[in-house]
Amino acid sequence: MGIFSKFLSKIKVTELLHKPDLDELADELIAADIGADLAHSIIEQTRKVKSATPEESLHTVLLSHLSKKERSISTASGVTAVMVVGVNGTGKTTSVAKLARNFQSQGTVVLAAADTFRAAAVEQLQTWGQRIGVEVVSGKENSDPASVAFDAISKAQQLSAAFLLIDTAGRLHNKSDLMNELGKIKRVIEKVTPVSEVLLVIDATTGQNGLQQAKIFAEAVQVTGIVLTKLDGSARGGIALAIEDSLDIPIKFVGTGESIEDLAPFNPDEYVKGLIS
């Protein structure tokens, strides 16, 4: 940047954004769980973008931090296998049901209840399966989740299903044995059919720990996309932007409510608007 343009940008900044305004903006971004460091660098960049209004500049900068990767589900020629993973309590089982509902219009869906750990998780998925009319393959409680997944593939192939959705047990990413188990489930499936998508479910209320979750899950099972849940609460889900920015994993779906239909494809524009609203 030459001296002249530097000077110009300074003029622009003093006209549009004063230091207190900038600090306030940064605080806003921090309050949305974007993270302090990223918030400050976003504000820095916003100063340098020339738009009609500061809001517009900020919007542009925020958008630029999102992943450029494809946000639709990649499908396979046979059964499209989708694994759903995440830490405890983010809404995996509910998301699996919503995804099933979403995919139903494109063909038969089979669900694998591979959360064999949490009490009554299998029943929870079965209840959803009955409600939407989708076959749920399950094993006994505490049975090997990989074997449930394996059985589910056979079932999906037998029914010439278009989609197989695999619900897995919630696990904290710092438990290496549980993360290894997840890797095993994926390898078992891949012996029969490729896994098209590994979706990580992130709770929109998650703080900075979300980054660590995404990083470690991605290392364990090559996460291809994120389902951002509970965005209808008081949280703005800024952690998802931090994840896209640092790990380049695209958000693919957003959970927006408690009913089975409340799942929408991710819309970058709306999301960014929500962040700074």
Binding site: A31, D33, T206, Q208, N209, G210, G233, A235
Partner: peptide
């Protein structure tokens, strides 16, 4: 409350 919750903790707790 989940110990992983972020900045929305206060708003939620207030609610």
């Amino acid at each position: 409350i989940d110990s992983m919750i972020g900045q929305s903790a206060i708003a939620t707790a207030r609610a």
